[in-house]
Design a protein around this nucleic acid. Structure first.
Lengths: 184, 184
DNA sequence: TCGGTCATGTAATGGGTTACATGATTGA
DNA sequence: TCAATCATGTAACCCATTACATGACCGA
């Protein structure tokens, strides 16, 4: 039930096509939610049937026609209802942690290689987030009111990446000491 | 494709029933993966059809009979293949962050109330993790080899909770300053 | 000429959630 | 007496992923 609110949330600011929504997802939303374009198109159809969004057709010569979607009044109402709900405990799904939970089954050297590679991919994502923040946010420390949400979620994304990297280093240390104890 | 490996991973240590697996999931695995019992039973059937697990029936008088599942040789092989794959970037799905990304639409006071409640639920989870670690882990700093995975994933879980709580406080500060600027 | 972008989707499959069902035992 | 635990599952639905499809334009 959450994808629909992500879509409605993005449409609350401006009219967009399914394609635009897909772009926005990978740019602004991917550090806390991900969705395929196929899912977005299906969701838009369902939302339109329910009367929560509507569209107008834009005809184009050089490119395929597109449908610009906007949030309707009932859609806006539904979005606000959802925004007023109580917070829930997070539902975790992290494949890397699942792997690490079974690392007692593999040699420490392999565990270390995995953790080093994982730290590097997370470092890469962090640097992209940093660049993104530099481009799209104001230079001041405090965010402007219309972008608080974006600012804060990106900030958490960056905290998560740093926290993951620190943990990787900690875990690498643990496996290195385990390795030494085995060989000695 | 990850649930099957979570199930196979738990079965790699000892024979278990679907019910036992469900218990283990909520105890040891829930801070990085979650699954309903219905899903686990379905997955066990699929894994058995594929020859990756097998079961033997235990008849009981006072309780319903149960099926104890164990990992087969091909299952063990499949598990090791998966454990040797390259690390992937994480796929995030966090409903709270999705909500926060739209908090420019609601009054700062409501945002603050949400963040305070969220911080408290995370604090509660952290305290449960801490109690769990006290009960099931050795008192020494370094984990024993057979429990590294469990130790490290729990450690990350706790880091995540602390990081979330710190971020909540940071975000509350941002909204408080926003509130002051609006009223003044 | 080849791959990327713009723009839209369908179909098949697989993963996840919710509701419902059974029936004995045990502790509050 | 009531709820929880043990233990198993089916059915219906919804959400997510992957593969496939179209076709013009633009820059290397």
């Amino acid at each position: 039930m959450a994808l629909r609110y992500a879509v409605m949330g993005l449409l609350s600011g401006e009219e967009m096509s399914g394609y635009d929504l897909t772009q926005q997802f990978s740019m602004k939303v991917s550090h806390f939610w991900n969705a395929h374009h196929t899912q977005i198109y299906r969701e838009l159809q369902k939302l339109e049937v329910e009367g929560l969004v509507s569209h107008r057709l834009i005809e184009q010569q050089d490119r395929p026609d597109k449908k610009l979607y906007k949030l309707t009044e009932p859609g806006m109402k539904e979005l606000f209802t959802w925004l007023s709900e109580e917070p829930k405990p997070p539902k975790m799904k992290n494949e890397s942690l699942l792997r690490v939970s079974l690392f007692h089954l593999i040699p420490p050297a392999q565990a270390i290689a995995f953790l080093e590679a994982s730290r590097d991919t997370h470092a890469h994502i962090l640097s992209m987030m940093d660049a993104f923040r530099g481009d799209y946010m104001s230079e001041s420390q405090e965010p402007i009111a219309e972008k608080v949400g974006e600012y804060l979620t990106l900030d958490f994304g960056m905290r998560f990446m740093r926290s993951w990297m620190e943990w990787c280093d900690f875990a690498i240390g643990v496996f290195k000491r385990l390795e030494e104890n085995q060989t000695s």
